[in-house]
Amino acid sequence: MQAEVTPAPKPKVDQSAAISHKRAKGYNLHAGDKYYAFAFLGPSLLVLGTFVFYPMLRTLYLSLFLTNNVGRPTVFVGLKNYIGLLTSSAYQASLQATAIYVIGVVALTLILGLLLAQLAVKKLAGIQWFRTIFSATMGVSVSVAAIFWLFIFSPSIGLFDQIGNLLHLPIVAWLTQPGPAMTAVIISTVWMNLGFTFLILFGALQMVPQPLYEASAIEGASESYQFFHVTIPMISPTLFFTSTVTLIGAFKSFGLIDLMTAGGPNNATNLMVYRVYQDAFLSGNYGIASAESVILAVIIALFTLLQFKFLEKRVTY
């Protein structure tokens, strides 16, 4: 091995020279670390390799095939699965539903989260109680949220129908009509997201230096002017972070959809992840479901990349 004869003449070696000063002379600087690196990193690499790298390649591979009912590739079809998907009206509808859901969830989560944070940041008597309440949905898991909201939206006995009854409003079949069902899952998701979003944005608001507000108040700035010209710019990195986290989370939504609408009615809430599940595990179309997975992964990877880029910039400030 070349490395054992000539130690790599990198400046970085200085550090490891210090590390290995106890070792016998002539001992390869890297040989010891190699053993440690294997021991320290091995388990993680094994797990990530088996359950993250390999499945990604395998999904890519499968997406180019027709498969049998246990998911083994049978006929190579190239990009036909992708072409078939992107030209099918059902998949286009699913993409559209996902877009509506994601945009609705992100917009409402951010607006309401910001409203809550802005309300809670001002010192008032008893404000601590409100802060605690606003962060409460952080402790709610997806099934619990789904069950609570399923009841609220349920026909005739649910809260919304009862209120509608009292006010003599027309009854809305929340979960059995396409539009209302989408609204219902968006509302439930936003509610579930709010605790975390509130906490993050509240933290950011607390970090905005008070003198900025005082200075602009002296110049006669109104509270809304301050909000848009001081608060928003100051917390924009956090806003960006929160929006990408919410966005990626929304693309991955599964549990709430499964419990509340199961993709229905009439596929109105059949979001991308839910379709993967249906096509793979209910219909046995693993090739097509793999192509759907790849499309989903590409979209999420793009948004994650965007977030990395931005965070990187922020770190170098």
Partner: peptide, 24 residues
Amino acid sequence: FLFYVILATMMLPFEAEVIPNFAT
């Protein structure tokens, strides 16, 4: 290189990998 590879896996959603993982 390894570190960047691991960083890259943060972009891959587990939801998109359930088919091979189930087989595994």
